[in-house]
Nucleic acid binder design. Structure first.
Length: 805
RNA sequence: GCCGGGGUGGCGUAAUGGUAGCCGCAGCGGUCUUAAAAACCGCAGUUCGCAAGGACGUGUGGGUUCGACUCCCACCCCCGGCACCA
């Protein structure tokens, strides 16, 4: 039998037709029911789209197409996140210029994306490396700057000795290595641009409660923001300024037996007694070396030395020796702690090592060195008996406030966003350094500050961007005084490009504004955002910050960019991430060429639940491919009988409506795998039926398949005589009254074990079922004349006869 | 260490208190064919049994229940995130 499926010509035909008719172009100004279906735009690597891209775009497209058939005007744009270190490093590696490479990659990506058959509106696309786009990225920077959200500071920043650039905290992995190249990250002090994300810490945190996002994603953000409530407490030092510490557990203050300062706390050396100073100085030097070498994994360290000096406990007046130790970090809280060895693991370890006393102040089953659960204060003077941590925390904080030595305080892990990159492949930061005027913004009318073509774009490694090599770029005049000036030679972080691209899409063809106010009011915030959880704390947090800032500055009238966010899963190969080094990268093009985009989409989504991690299985695509051929065979069968109408049997109507129901429930819940299984079951049923296929069956299949196999669905729909396009038809509705079974199988169990079954009319009542069950010969054999003590009947399902002993 | 997700046939998975293994892959047997492929039909958790049928079976151990993959407790393993955060 010849295959009825020539996917190449079929898919090419419909893709051409969609383009001619502009099926996916949305009249943004007029659309009555806007639905902004966004998916994270890809970074156009040299390898082309990978299976993960194909998977997530297919899933997000199914969502968009389904919403369209439900009557929404779905705007589904796609673009290219093409600036960044990825591209630049690759260009360095292959010895070509990134601007050339990216043009090729973008063209290739676009071709691949078109082949996938998604309903992308290509009339509104973005490429972050296009001056028409990054002009507005620069505008965004200036706007944030003028609005008080950008500032320069000399900071110890994370520096990658391999990529020779500054990294954001988020780009440093837990083991202290560079997210991109794996080199051990070090520290370096440079003058940097920062964006004041800390201005919105509380809102970024609080808004999460009411955002309709994947819970997992929200959790990651909460974690990253890292809010801790506690108190700042001053510990006086005789003849000196007090030491201020931060503690989340002020209720344990009576258990404080010593103090610890971070090695890079500004007062560590100064506080050391003359006798201890030489030893302290040596220790601080070593500690600095360890920190710069990026030894972040040196956990549980009890390394430290005494300063030979005491602090005074503010409530008991006891003398507490002061130490400096690796385990206290300068970057968190005040960089100094009160150590409570009885109730903190690290303090406990340090106390053991240095023979320091521990005083238990909270009762509890847990041993020393544990915070444990709730308990009652002991050894805490007039506070004994208070429940800890609460309300003891508030009571003791209040006492400290009264004593003038403390105040309630909240700290966060979230830091301001460093955006300066001493690299080439990014939008130049639009700032000018003038000797007399200082740092001056580039006037808006001078944007874009074009990224010059530089032959040698290797990083200098001096802390300056390669743009410093280009004198024409570097030297300019001050827009304020007209005097000689230099441009900022850093480029901005790629995440700045992607922090606002969703605002740009609807206005992508406008060169007079970054985003048109009216279109923005109509289409934003984004209705539905599909993306990977790897961006839970970077892109998604930055986007929220930018939106809040732009709202505060009057450019937007909403504060959250993504109304609904859903994280998708990823595709792995035998349990491991696909990567070139593992040699398990699957090239999707081959699959599409051989089986077609429809089969490939179907296959990827059939692999398992869309939100989860799924295993790619090479041969798995055969099933979905066969399924498509079976559907087309049914269509051919129907066509062969053209003219003779076949009435749909009640049986087939039931199967069909069940299928509609299942697909309708599963699709919006993103259970694409079970939706596809339901369609397979229906097709199986049709084939088993053997009789002439009713037209309704194929009409329904065309509609249900439309989001999943957009080309195939069009073909079926057209051949059935339906009006173009199937994607503009309303989603079918299941008729509940047709779905119910007439007959059901009721399992008969004895003591929970299946022993026989009954086939009865649906809805048979419990006592009838019990009677029928007891009459079954096999059941009577098992009962051996005994009478069940109890009988449990689940109508239409099960009868359980219970015998004791 | 902390937080989240997960562990079911050879494989991807389905079923979230009521017949465990739906749907699919791979496999095996058959039909068609000169042959192979494709297509189509059938078999298929493990085990005992000629069969009828039975026993066992959802990471491990306990518990709740007439009934547990599903709920509770403890533990083991895998994946992801965070990590001297006081």
């Amino acid at each position: 039998m010849t295959s009825p499926y020539d996917h190449r010509s079929l898919e090419a035909k419909w893709q051409a037709r969609w383009q001619e008719t502009g099926l996916y172009r949305v009249d943004l100004a007029r659309a009555p029911r806007p639905y902004y279906n966004l998916m994270m735009f890809p970074y156009p690597s040299a390898e082309g789209l990978h299976v993960g891209n194909m998977f997530s775009f297919s899933g997000a497209d199914v969502h968009g197409r389904y919403e369209r058939m439900r009557g929404f005007d779905v705007f589904e744009p796609i673009g290219f996140d093409a600036f960044g270190i990825h591209s630049e490093n690759f260009a360095l590696k292959v010895g070509r210029h990134p601007s050339e490479l990216i043009a090729t990659n973008v063209a290739r990506f676009r071709e691949q994306l078109e082949k996938l058959g998604a309903q992308f509106d290509w009339s509104k696309t973005v490429d972050t490396t296009d001056p028409a786009y990054y002009r507005w990225t620069q505008w965004l920077f200036l706007t944030l700057w003028k609005g008080g959200f950008a500032y320069r500071a000399r900071r110890n920043v994370k520096w990658c000795p391999q990529d020779l650039t500054v990294l954001a905290d988020e780009q440093v992995l837990a083991d202290g290595s560079c997210e991109r190249c794996g080199a051990q990250v070090t520290e370096r002090e440079l003058q940097q641009w920062f964006l004041r994300i800390s201005a919105f810490t509380d809102r970024l945190l609080e808004n999460l409660d009411s955002l309709n996002w994947s819970e997992n994603t929200k959790l990651l953000q909460r974690h990253w923001i890292g809010r801790s409530q506690g108190a700042l407490i001053d510990f006086p030092i005789p003849g000196d300024d007090p030491i201020r510490v931060f503690s989340t557990r002020p209720d344990t203050i009576f258990g404080a037996t010593f103090m610890v300062l971070a090695p890079d706390h500004p007062r560590t050396l100064e506080l050391a007694s003359p006798a201890a100073r030489p030893e302290v100085a040596v220790f601080l030097e070593e500690a600095a070396r360890r920190r710069i070498a990026g030894q972040r994994s040196d956990e549980g360290s009890t390394r430290g030395v005494a300063l030979g000096r005491d602090a005074i406990h503010p409530l008991t007046g006891a003398a507490l020796p002061i130490f400096t130790a690796d385990y206290v970090l300068s970057g968190y809280g005040t960089g100094a702690i009160m150590a409570v060895p009885a109730h903190d693991q690290r303090d406990h370890g340090f106390a053991l090592e240095h023979h320091l006393p521990a005083v238990e102040v909270v009762t509890g089953k847990e041993g020393p060195g544990t915070h444990g659960g709730a308990g009652v204060l002991i050894n805490s003077s007039q506070f004994n008996g208070l429940k800890s941590p609460d309300p003891a925390r508030e009571v003791i904080t209040a006492a400290l406030v009264e004593a003038g030595s403390g105040q309630a305080h909240v700290t966060y892990k979230l830091r301001d966003w460093g955006i300066s990159r001493q690299r080439y492949w990014g939008p130049p930061i639009p700032a000018i350094h003038c000797h007399s005027c200082g740092v001056v913004p580039v006037p808006e009318q001078d944007l874009p500050v074009l990224l010059p073509y530089i032959e040698d774009f290797r990083p200098l490694g001096t802390g300056e961007s390669p743009l410093a090599r280009d004198p024409d770029f570097l030297h300019t005049t001050c827009p304020q005084c007209g005097g000689e000036a230099r441009r900022d030679t850093d480029v901005s972080d790629t995440f700045l490009d992607s922090s606002w691209y969703y605002l740009r899409y609807p206005s992508a063809d406008r060169d007079d504004v970054p985003f048109d106010p009216e279109l923005t009011r109509k289409w934003l915030p984004v209705t539905y955002y599909d993306g990977g959880n790897e961006h839970a704390v970077l892109h998604l947090l930055y986007s929220r910050f930018v939106t809040m800032a732009l709202e505060q500055l009057g450019y937007l009238d909403f504060s959250e960019p993504f109304t609904e966010f859903r994280a998708h899963g990823m595709i792995v190969m035998s349990g491991a991430k696909m990567s070139k080094s593992r040699g398990n990268v699957v090239v999707p093009d081959e699959y599409i060429a051989r089986f077609g985009a429809d089969a490939f989409r179907l296959y990827l989504l059939y692999l398992g639940p869309y939100p989860e991690t799924l295993n790619f299985v090479d041969s798995g695509i055969n099933g979905p491919y066969r399924f498509i051929i079976q559907v087309l065979r049914l269509l051919e069968q129907l066509e062969a009988r053209s003219g003779t109408a076949t009435a749909e049997s009640a049986e087939l109507a039931r199967a069909r409506h069940r299928c509609i129901q299942q697909v309708t429930v599963d699709t919006p819940e993103r259970k694409y795998n079970t939706a596809i299984a339901a369609m397979m079951i229906f097709v199986k049923r049709l084939r088993e039926d053997g009789g002439p296929v009713p037209k309704e069956a194929l009409e329904t299949l065309a509609l249900l398949l439309a989001p999943y196999c957009p080309h195939l669905a069009e073909e079926i729909w057209e051949r059935l005589g339906g009006p173009y396009s199937v994607h503009q038809q309303p989603w079918p509705t299941a008729d509940e009254s047709l779905i119910a079974d007439e007959e059901v199988v009721v399992v008969v169990c004895i003591n929970g074990k299946k022993r026989d079954q009954l086939v009865v009319a649906a809805g048979t009542d419990s006592s009838t079922l019990e009677g029928l069950a007891l009459e079954l010969p096999r059941i009577q054999q098992w009962l051996e004349g005994r009478v069940p003590e109890r009988v449990f009947v689940v109508p239409d399902r099960q009868v359980n006869l219970v015998l004791t002993d």
